[in-house]
Amino acid sequence: MSTKGALVKREAKTAIKKHAKKAVKHAAKKSAPKKSAKKAAKQAAERATGVGAVYATDYGLMTAFHHMQRASVVISLMEKGTGEDLRDLLERGVKLYRKATDGEEGNRFVLRAIGVLRAAEHLSLAGLYAARQKHKQKVASPAPEWLEKFIAEADRRLEQIEHAERGKGTDLFPVTVELLRQAEDSDHDAQLAYELAMAADALCFALENGL
């Protein structure tokens, strides 16, 4: 093959490659808006149909249900005639859970149910720890800095909702404050303080959501 023929062939290959790259870029530009449009349409459909809200409600109900079951199991281990306040709190949580599963109004109650039932779970564990003091392991607890910060943050949140309008949870505000004070008590062991602080945080969450 002559030098001239080789040169022509090489130039032809280069031109084909350039054309192919240009075609790919052009196709990508055309498909990108379509993909974006499809994504936007899907998001709009989810907003219109409330798919996201449905998922959130289902997840919330699942969370509330598991807190309820764990609290029930622990409370069942308590001696008869004890833990009446705790049983009442659990029953309040169960009522909120039932309302949360009841039709379109459920979204209003699911977060409140989570808060109350989570509080019942942590308080039931706190009661169990207190009743089983002699079975504690003789090991040192970790440093309390994290718990102190957690309690301080919960205290700040309570201050923000102290004068907020409430539904049936008016009596639970002072209970939440008292739980935080008990969690701060240095006489408690670390695990008991943790459970009390978690219970206070859970009730604070329920109060923040309109309980």
Rank of each mutant, 00 (worst) to 15 (best):
M1A: 11
M1K: 05
M1P: 07
K4T: 15
A6H: 03
A6R: 04
K9V: 04
R10K: 15
T14A: 14
A15G: 06
I16K: 14
I16P: 04
K17P: 01
K17A: 01
K18M: 10
K18N: 11
K18I: 08
H19C: 08
V24E: 10
K25E: 10
K25Y: 07
H26E: 13
A27R: 11
K29G: 09
K30L: 10
A32Y: 06
S36G: 08
A37L: 05
K42I: 08
A44E: 04
A45R: 05
A45G: 05
R47V: 02
V54G: 03
Y55V: 11
Y55H: 09
A56Y: 01
D58T: 07
G60Y: 01
L61S: 03
M62V: 06
H66M: 08
A71Q: 06
S72Q: 07
V74E: 11
V74S: 12
S76H: 05
K80P: 12
G81L: 09
G81V: 09
G83N: 06
E84Y: 05
D85L: 05
D88I: 10
D88L: 10
D88V: 12
D88T: 13
L96A: 04
K99H: 03
A100L: 01
T101Q: 07
D102C: 05
D102R: 02
E104V: 06
E104W: 05
R108S: 12
F109E: 00
F109G: 00
V110S: 00
L111D: 05
A113M: 00
A119F: 02
A119L: 02
A119R: 01
H122I: 06
H122N: 14
L123M: 13
S124E: 06
L125R: 13
A126M: 03
L128C: 11
L128H: 12
Y129T: 01
A130R: 15
R132N: 15
H135F: 12
H135M: 10
H135W: 11
K136S: 10
Q137V: 12
Q137R: 10
Q137F: 11
W146R: 14
K149M: 14
F150P: 02
F150V: 03
I151C: 13
E153F: 12
Q160K: 14
Q160E: 13
I161A: 02
H163E: 05
H163V: 04
A164S: 14
E165S: 13
R166T: 11
G169L: 00
F173H: 14
P174T: 00
V177F: 03
L180T: 00
R181T: 06
Q182K: 10
A183V: 12
A183C: 12
E184A: 10
E184T: 04
D185Y: 14
S186A: 15
H188L: 15
D189F: 13
D189T: 07
A190D: 13
A190R: 13
Q191I: 14
Q191Y: 13
Q191N: 15
L192P: 13
A193G: 15
Y194G: 11
Y194L: 14
Y194D: 15
E195T: 08
A197S: 15
A199M: 10
A200N: 03
A202W: 00
L203S: 00
C204Y: 02
G210E: 00
